[in-house]
Structure formats: C-alpha cells, structure tokens
Simulated assay, not measured.
Amino acid sequence: MKQSLSTRIQARTDLARKWLENGVPSSVEDCPTSLNEWRVYHKPALGIFKIGSKTGYTTSNATLGTSIQLLADLTTALNADRGLTPSGKAKANPEQKKKRSYKPEKLRRLIAEKDNERLEALLAKVTGQWHEARYDATAAETELNSLKRINDEDRQTIASLKREVAELKRELHSSGVHLRKV
C-alpha cells in the first residue's frame, strides 16, 4: 500500500497518542522507543508501514518537522510511562530528575488543537448518548404510565363484574335457586 510520508508519520503519531492514553497492549512486543525505531516499525495490521529513507524523517524538516517532533515527544512520554530509555532498556534510577525539554509554541499549539478536537468529538458523542438515554427513559416512563392506567381500568372492571356477579347470585338465591361450587 502506497502512503505519503506525512500519512505514515500521522499514523505513528495517532498510534503513539492512543497507546499513551490507553496503555500499550500486551499483544505488542516491540513498542518503538526512539524515532529511528518508529521509522523502521512495520505493522500493517495497525496501519503502520515502514519509512525507508531517513532523508525527510527529521525534526528539522521544514514541512514535517513539527509532526516528527510531536512523535518524539509522545515517544518520550511513552518511554517514561513504561520506565524505559530510548534504547528500550529499563532506567537505572527512575527518581533521577530529567531535564525539561523545550517544545516550540507551534508544536504546543498543534498538540492543544488536536486534544481540543478529540475532546469536542468526545463531548458530541457523550451528548448524543445522553439525549438518546433521556429519550428512551421518557418513552419508558410514558409506556409505564399507560400500563398503570390500563391496569387501574382493568381492576375497576373486575371489581364491577364481581359486584354484578354477587348481585346476580343474591337474586338467584332469593328466587330459590341454590348454586353449588364446582
């Protein structure tokens, strides 16, 4: 499958963000821990295809540099969550303070915009679910009230019929006809 470099980088960024939010699945044995490992990572089942050339795959690239830097930042965060260094080895001293990395304003803005888009989509989804649940609850309440009304009417009808049967029994008994229970 032929994909552009920007599409391949975006697929890696989306996957790294998903893993950062939900954790790396246990079925993934070889999670990339550096930009170069991400470049050669090839998992068609996940929609990730190998990037062969290193030429355009740099943080200093004029058009894709911010996307690659975002992937680098996500990789760093993934490594930190998993207690790994870029080489994939466990950290020797996890309490050691790490130097804060500088993120360009454009990169911070892009990250914030992506997060905002994701949160707005989530809000729309949850709002739709809430409206659907409210509609279902209202419909169920209307049906329940209708069934209660029908039940009350049936009870009144039964009581009326019992009174009528009792009256007819009294009339038969007064006329000298005796009924036997069967």
Rank of each mutant, 00 (worst) to 15 (best):
T7H: 06
I9E: 02
L15M: 05
L15C: 03
K18H: 09
L20Q: 07
E21I: 09
E21A: 15
V24C: 09
V24H: 03
P25H: 02
S26H: 06
S27A: 13
S27N: 12
P32Y: 02
L35D: 03
N36E: 15
E37S: 13
E37D: 12
V40D: 07
V40A: 05
A45W: 01
I48S: 02
F49E: 09
G52P: 02
G52L: 06
T55W: 10
S60Q: 09
A62E: 11
S67H: 11
L70A: 05
L70D: 07
D73Q: 11
T75Y: 01
T76P: 00
A77T: 08
L84P: 01
P86E: 13
S87A: 03
K91M: 14
E95G: 09
K99M: 08
K106M: 04
K106Y: 08
L107E: 07
I111R: 10
I111W: 00
K114H: 15
K114E: 15
A121W: 00
L122G: 07
L122F: 05
A124L: 08
W130F: 09
E132L: 10
Y135M: 11
A139T: 07
T142H: 09
L144P: 00
N145R: 14
S146F: 12
K148N: 11
E153N: 14
D154K: 14
R155I: 12
A166L: 13
L172N: 06
V177H: 08
K181V: 12
